[in-house]
Design a protein around this nucleic acid. Structure first.
Lengths: 210, 210
DNA sequence: CGACGTGCCTACTCGCCCGTAGGATGTCCG
DNA sequence: CGGACATCCTACGGGCGAGTAGGCACGTCG
């Protein structure tokens, strides 16, 4: 007795036929689960198909190969992160609040979609050019947006501002990742506030020279 | 191809017999080259053996398997990093100088041994427990040492100080990695100084509450 | 000189997993 | 009804690379 599963996500009744787009979404979701749990290399296409309640050829009717499937997911989350960062920086004109909003953006990012942030921050495929490119580009893009603001206020050279920007973004990334793995010791907003305070004290009125 | 600069004598005189310990050191060096260039997964035991001018069974007479070989190298560099960090923090009693010394330690670390820091910071085997354990432990240990000092001066709770410590160490790691890949734009000591200044401004006299 | 140990080699097995060939089973429309 | 079209299946091919079997060369010591 097969009832019609309309939009219920993550059902595995081997035998339901789905329209193409819905199937694709489901496959992406299953793939994300497996890639996040195991990383790229330990993830098997068979398991992704299994978890979607489907056989392997179906997977290959939607994606030309394992790498392309991975890149599709990676793009999704890389863009998500950059957009969150951009929105945070554009949410106000006061730099102190910008810093707070940006840290909140990073903490939000690592809190969503299970542990999908691992695709961006802990990919085990960085040695493959298209992956490396996307991951590094996302960091640079965030740092770029930050360093543009830094340059306005401090008069640092472009290179110097970039270094500071990368450092700040890196601090946000690493602290957010640490916080998310030790859930329970500090509430989210307290952690965000503390890190934002650290960053703002460091960067506000940063002197051009020693 | 990349430049073939090795600590060990180059060349593959397939026929030179070496005493056990010397051979082992050479194998470790060859393995480091290959693992750093390609990551764990894309590195082939055949190529490691080749680069050492030796055949594969020799490799297996020194290491029980690929993973153990990798772990031996990883331990080396993880310990190196933690020691550099510890020494830097112990090099003075004045916290401002401690911060400077610590950033210098991270910049030194990413500057040595080709790009061996990739083993620690960009391992593509973090999904395997013993690797993940070592990598995370190294970050925690550095952050632990930093947070102990933070706690003394700020009266933060242990959890709060840990978060700050992880953030600062993360900033050092990420900025050092960024700097090393963009060699030429900023001299090493200038980059160290600037990042140290950012961190010190942020952390010195950090207020307990908002 | 021959027996033994050490260092090394060539050449194979074997398991894993990506990707595919070819066939079955609905659904829609004339 | 019957054919066209889509969706999905059960297998299998084939490459790649970790790890191994078994043998050769060279020295040394009784």
């Amino acid at each position: 007795m097969e009832t019609r599963v309309t939009a219920t996500p993550d059902a595995k009744p081997r035998g339901t036929r789905l329209p193409r787009l819905a199937r694709r979404r489901q496959l992406l979701s299953a793939a994300q689960e497996v890639f996040v749990e195991n990383g790229y290399h330990a993830a098997a296409m068979d398991e992704i198909a299994d978890r979607a309640g489907v056989s392997k050829p179906v997977l290959y009717q939607h994606f030309p190969g394992k790498l392309e499937l991975y890149l599709a997911l990676l793009d999704l989350h890389v863009d998500d992160m950059v957009n969150r960062c951009r929105d945070a920086l554009a949410s106000t004109n006061e730099n102190k609040l910008r810093v707070q909003a940006t840290f909140q953006a990073f903490f939000d990012f690592v809190s969503t979609q299970g542990e999908a942030f691992r695709l961006v921050f802990e990919s085990d495929l960085r040695n493959v050019a298209p992956v490396r490119q996307r991951v590094e580009r996302s960091l640079r893009e965030c740092a770029e947006m930050v360093s543009a603001l830094i340059q306005e206020d401090t008069g640092c050279t472009s290179d110097e501002a970039h270094l500071l920007g990368v450092g700040l973004v890196g601090m946000a990334e690493v602290s957010a990742r640490y916080w998310v793995t030790t859930h329970g010791s500090i509430p989210k907003d307290a952690a965000e506030q503390m890190m934002a305070r650290l960053a703002w004290r460091g960067i506000s009125g940063f002197p051009r020279t020693a």
